[in-house]
Structures are given as structure tokens and as C-alpha cells.
Design a protein around this nucleic acid. Structure first.
Length: 197
DNA sequence: GGTCGGATTAACT
DNA sequence: GTTAATCCGACCG
């Protein structure tokens, strides 16, 4: 695993093409990551959960890199981040889309509303659902069972950037393009701007 | 202690 | 294209 103790802005493009695997009692599901967004630290990024400082919810973002930060949103969805930066500095990469490459039958059972396999993990909450991640996994290390994260041998080709989806302020407006995705991949979620951006 | 709105999704018209 | 679903964290008093 590469060194994650750098800013999420450096790590985010390196995560494209990486294989993220979760081995649950029901079986293992793995995805090839195709879409991510970087969130940077305290006081710098109004879109980040760490913008207003450390709280009970975002404490994991301030901890060791290479761990999972999960949060609950819209009353029903869970999203997952890879914690970056040295301890004390809160940056993270939100996993927004991926292609299921292992355990596709289990992923289909978990995502019965998906109309096709490309939709299984297209979107941050769908990705979490397909992999069987829950809020109880908050803070889990990504280099230990039941998780693993393997980076590609070479930097992935065809990386495109955009403004972040559904975010206002820096990163949701030019010139901050903190969303990274594999161009043309069918498992990349559609871009939506923030209503007020 | 009350209010507001969200790093979304699915089901509508 | 629009909107309901549905909870909790953050903020204000």
C-alpha cells in the first residue's frame, strides 16, 4: 500500500483503479475504484466535515491515515472515505463510484434496485451498500481484515477532473477541481452541481 | 431544546 | 424535470 500520509488532493487520483475489498460473513465483494472526491482540512474547505474543527463524528479524520471514515447522511445513507494526511491533519477521499470485480452476485442481492451491474456501486451510498459497509466500520484499518486496499502498479490512464458534486464553495466552484474519475467509465456517477453553487 | 439542511437515492410526472 | 424519504449533527438560543 502506498503512503497515505499526504493530503487527499495528492492521494485522490492515485486511488483511481485501486481495488477495495470487504470480506463480510456473507462473502467478499471487491470493486475497482473509478470515481473519488478529495476533502481537505480544518478551516480550509467549507464542504468538509472537518471545516469547523474536531467533533465526535469526524474524529476518525484526525486519526491515522489508511483508515475508513464513514458517515450517515440524508437520514438513510452511509458514505465512506479513506482517511489521508498525518494524524492531527484532517483530509479524506470520498469513494463515489466503482466497478464490482468480485462477489457480483452478493452485490446484486444487496442492491436489488440496480437496473444493471454498472449501477451496483455507482454513487457513494450505493458503493457502500454493494460492499456491505456500515457505520460500525467507522475507523476500521484498510490494511487488515476484513478490508484490503490494493493500488494499481502504474498510475491509471484517462483520469479526468471536475468540480465536486453537490458541494457549494471551493471545490464546488471554479477553479477547484477536486473530483477525480476515469473518463468514460460507466460506473462513474453523473455530475450534479449544488443548487446554490 | 428547537430548527435547519445535508459529500443521496429512488420513484414519481 | 421534481420530490419524498427520514435521521443526526451543527448551530442558535
Amino acid at each position: 500500500m502506498i503512503d497515505l500520509a499526504e493530503s487527499s488532493l495528492e492521494i485522490a487520483p492515485l486511488l483511481l483503479g485501486a481495488v477495495f475489498r470487504h470480506d463480510s460473513p456473507a462473502g467478499a465483494v471487491a470493486i475497482r475504484i473509478t470515481e473519488v472526491e478529495a476533502y481537505i482540512g480544518e478551516g480550509l474547505d467549507p464542504g468538509s466535515h472537518a471545516f469547523r474543527g474536531k467533533t465526535a463524528r469526524n474524529a476518525v479524520m484526525y486519526g491515522d491515515p489508511g483508515h475508513l471514515y464513514t458517515y450517515f447522511t440524508y437520514g438513510m445513507h452511509v458514505c465512506a472515505n479513506v482517511v489521508c494526511s498525518p494524524p492531527g491533519e484532517a483530509t479524506a477521499v470520498l469513494l463515489r463510484g466503482g466497478e464490482v470485480i468480485e462477489g457480483i452476485e452478493l452485490a446484486r442481492e444487496r442492491r436489488t434496485t440496480a437496473k444493471n451491474d454498472a449501477e451496483l456501486a455507482r454513487g457513494p451510498a450505493r458503493l457502500v451498500r454493494a460492499l456491505g459497509i456500515a457505520m460500525t466500520d467507522n475507523g476500521a484499518a484498510l490494511d487488515r481484515e476484513p478490508f484490503s486496499l490494493e493500488f494499481p502498479q502504474a498510475r491509471s490512464a484517462g483520469i479526468a477532473t471536475s468540480l465536486r458534486t453537490g458541494v457549494s464553495g471551493p471545490g464546488g466552484r471554479d477553479p477547484f477541481r477536486w473530483r477525480f474519475f476515469l473518463e468514460g467509465d460507466p460506473t462513474v456517477s453523473p455530475y450534479k452541481r449544488h443548487p446554490k453553487a
